[in-house]
Design a protein around this nucleic acid. Structure first.
Length: 797
DNA sequence: GACAGTGAAATTTTT
DNA sequence: TTTCACTGTC
């Protein structure tokens, strides 16, 4: 174990002897429920630790217990503990559970990689070459900036570049790196990347990748910062380590000095983010890169029945390059899984509805059932069917709330008020609602602003607008545009004043734990200040905004609403004063959309933040880094519709893996790494199930309006036949698929074509005929009786 | 410079 | 089915 944090605990590494026995009792309490491997993981204290935690093996429990144990038994200062996760949900859960074990754990830093990066950069903005109020750009902002810099190219042309840039950053490659050819062979990429990066920096903004790569650079260039950070965090833990990318590995390397205790937890079989740069190699080679590593395997599974785990194991064994784990069920019993062969999505949805109904009949809840799919688009059929059948459901993720036009508009205003260099936001709001400033004029203003910024001007866009409005020396626009520019400037200035003065830069020792109480007190005062000066219009329009949007829906009673509090009052004011409220109200009337409602939701989301600059910054940051934020709806009992990626870390009594069709899941037909990743995804899906597991596959599917003929996923053939039963028919009654030796989904071998999977069967000339999709990618129609076709299986069937 | 209309293309997963 | 780029008209 590391020496306890120097600042707080010199000499305090041993628990007070007087308290010793009672502490040990408590320790016994929370350790006794752990199995031997879990205990070993908690108690481990020498050298790096890699915990290979199989699905459902109590991973979070081990981490949180370890945090509590470090604090209680090892005398580690909670502030010295850093735990990083990949999703906000995981971070939140970890923090909550650790705090429940020991309230002091709430003082530990438990964040996502990206949010920790943002935290570090804000506190060391100057050293990192950023304004402390830097804006975080999401992917669409990145694309906007790219198209601003490359005006001769369309967004469609630029979108691959946007992907390549973020991939390059995943690998920690800058615009000048000679290794960029690993990303793409496109010749123009380095130049476009470079121009983008320069402009991004000029805009006082960072993208997601920067949140990691800039930290790596900061730690390398500034030994002082690195030393402080290493002193602050003597314990570093990483969850879901299999999803880390190269840049995150580099970051970790910088965070960990010789004294740091490092513990990573992960499961190589659940690595499913390769497409965005995750490197399974990080976990596969951890013990080489961190010499002296102890590896502990958690293979006891507390979630699923053995049958489910056997399926999962059989499937994932088809992958190569694994560290290897075998899950052992701790729960008894469990029946077979089911493969349902269905005709189309309607049948698929109907089948799922039946699964739900049966589960309900045996006393279960709607929320016990999860329907998993590969792509978000697949949720639609389930939604419409469930709506019609009166089955409550909830769609997890995919809530593109923050990508909506009206929300983005508002956020752009808020960003621009926080960061006057923010070009992307400026472009978005300068002429919305229309102020008579068209494309040409915008380009002229931006060009002028870029010049001004180069001269050190801190508010280049406002100054450039003043020029355009004829308020100062420079190129003025024609009358209509000039008036628009003037009104924009006036608006921005009013709102800025309302927001209050700039916050002073961070103090000298930025990584010292901050006394949080002081911050809240001052911000509460600020909150009061803003909300006590309401614009009379605010109230009036707020009431209108609360009125029913669609005729015939809602009522007038709702209009007696509470006045927005805290930052919400300011956000509302921005929406009103900028004219966005009226503009989108108009849109609602034309299109029957719910933009005003969405804006209200956004206002509500701001209410828990203090109404000052700091509050606004943290509001914007949490939105940028946690897109699932606004879903805080009431907890209703409904069937869960969710993508497989989103299920990571979740479990459900009943799981339906839908859309098991070649080309859809797995997505690509090719073999290799891509296929292995899809298989891991399949493995994740299977291991979410506690009691019952279903697979559905359709013969045809409506994809973007067209009807496509589909074939069963080759993954179905990897499921040992004795662990599943099949139901359903593929078209006509005679073609029942369940029985028969040559069912669809059966793995076969042909001397001529190699191995493959039967995707279809029917009768031709009184003989059974099957269509086989071979691994070579070829398809062939064969008579099992006449062509040499063997059935194969790996379970000795 | 705004905006409506047309035609064509595109759909994976997320911090 | 939706989104985006491009064209033509006011």
């Amino acid at each position: 174990m590391p020496a306890p944090d120097g600042r707080n605990s010199a000499g305090a590494s041993r628990p007070d002897p007087a308290e010793g026995s009672s502490r040990r009792d408590t320790a016994a309490d929370y350790l006794s429920g752990l199995n031997p491997e879990q205990q070993a993981a908690v108690l481990h204290s020498k050298g790096p630790l890699l915990i290979l935690a199989g699905a459902g093996s109590g991973k979070t429990r081990v981490i949180t217990t370890k945090i509590a144990y470090l604090i209680r038994e090892m005398g580690v200062n909670p502030e010295s503990i850093l735990a990083v996760t990949f999703t906000n949900k995981a971070a939140k859960e970890m923090a909550e559970r650790a705090s429940r074990l020991d309230p002091r754990a709430s003082r530990a830093t438990i964040r996502t990689f990206h949010s920790f990066g943002a935290w570090l950069l804000r506190r060391n903005a100057q050293a990192a070459g950023l304004p402390s109020s830097f804006t975080i750009y999401d992917d669409s902002d990145t694309l906007s900036l790219l198209s601003a810099v490359n005006q001769d190219m369309t967004r469609t042309q630029l979108s691959p570049f946007s992907r390549w840039i973020s991939r390059a950053k995943d690998y920690c490659l800058g615009p000048d790196s000679p290794e960029l050819n690993r990303i793409t062979s496109e010749d123009s990429f380095p130049a476009i990347y470079k121009a983008y990066q320069e402009r991004l920096t000029k805009a006082g903004a960072v993208d997601f990748g920067d949140l990691i790569t800039r930290c790596v650079k900061l730690m390398r260039d500034e030994p002082g910062v690195r030393a402080r950070i290493r002193q602050r965090f003597s314990v570093v833990m990483v969850d879901e380590y299999q999803d880390s990318n190269v840049a995150q590995y580099e970051f970790l390397r910088e965070l960990c000095g010789p004294e740091t205790y490092i513990c990573v937890v992960g499961d190589d079989d659940q690595s499913i983010y390769r497409f965005r740069g995750a490197e399974v190699k990080n976990i596969l080679t951890f013990d080489e890169r961190f010499p002296g590593t102890t590896v502990i395997r958690l293979e006891r599974n507390y979630r699923s029945t053995q049958n489910i785990l056997s399926i999962a194991t059989a499937v994932v064994e088809n992958n190569s390059g694994r560290l290897g784990k075998t899950l052992i069920a701790q729960r008894p019993g469990g029946g077979k899984a089911t493969i349902a062969y269905l005709h189309d999505q309607d049948q698929e949805a109907a089948y799922c509805a039946r699964v739900v109904a049966e589960h309900r009949k045996s006393g279960g809840r709607y929320g016990d059932v999860a329907i998993l799919y590969r792509t978000n688009a697949q949720s639609l059929e389930f939604e419409t069917a469930f709506l019609r059948l009166g089955i409550p459901y909830q769609v997890v993720g995919s809530l593109k709330f923050y990508e909506r036009e009206e929300v983005k508009d508002t956020l752009s205003w808020l960003s621009f008020l926080t960061n006057p260099l923010d070009e992307v936001s400026f472009r978005r709001i300068i002429n919305k609602p229309v102020r008579g400033i068209g494309e040409k004029s915008i380009e002229r203003i931006v060009a002028s602003a870029v010049r001004l910024a180069a001269g050190g001007e801190t508010e280049p866009f406002l100054i450039a607008c003043e020029e355009a409005g004829g308020m100062r020396e420079g190129e003025a626009l024609a009358s209509k545009g000039a008036a628009g520019a003037r009104s924009f400037v006036a608006l921005a200035k009013t709102l800025k004043i309302l927001l209050g003065p700039e916050v002073p830069e961070a103090s000298a020792s930025p990584e010292t734990p901050e006394p949080e109480v002081a911050g809240i007190a001052s911000t509460a005062a600020e909150a009061a200040r803003v909300s006590t000066t309401p614009d009379p219009r605010t109230v009036e329009i707020a009431v209108e905004a609360g009125a029913p949007v669609k005729p015939g829906k809602g009522n007038g009673k709702k209009s007696r609403r509470r006045e927005p509090e805290g930052l919400a009052a300011f956000v509302q004011r921005v929406i009103m004063d900028t004219g966005l409220a009226d503009y989108h109200k108009g849109q609602d009337e034309i299109q029957g959309s719910q933009k005003v409602q969405n804006l209200e939701q956004l206002i509500n989301g701001a209410s828990s933040y203090p109404a000052d600059r700091a509050g606004l910054s943290s509001f914007l940051e949490s939105i940028a880094l946690d897109r699932s934020l606004a879903i805080e709806g009431e907890e209703l009992d409904g069937v869960v519709l969710i993508t497989i990626h989103n299920t990571k870390g979740l479990e459900f009594p009943v799981v339906v893996v839908s859309g098991m069709e070649a080309g859809l899941f797995p997505r690509e037909e090719e073999e290799g790494e891509e296929r292995e990743e899809e298989r891991r995804l399949f493995y994740v899906a299977i291991t979410r199930a506690k009691d019952a597991l279903f697979f559905t596959t359709c013969r045809e599917r409506r994809l973007w309006g067209r009807l496509e003929e589909m074939y069963p996923s080759p993954f179905l053939a990897e499921i040992p036949r004795d662990l599943v039963e099949t139901v359903g028919s593929y078209g006509g009654a005679e073609e029942a698929v369940g029985g028969g030796e040559w069912a669809a989904g059966t793995a076969v071998f042909s001397e001529e074509y190699g191995s493959g999977v039967i995707c279809r069967r029917w009768h031709a000339a009184d003989q059974l005929m099957v269509e086989v999709e071979f691994e070579s990618g070829r398809r062939a129609k064969l008579f099992p009786k006449y062509n040499k076709l063997e059935r194969i299986s790996r379970d000795g069937f």
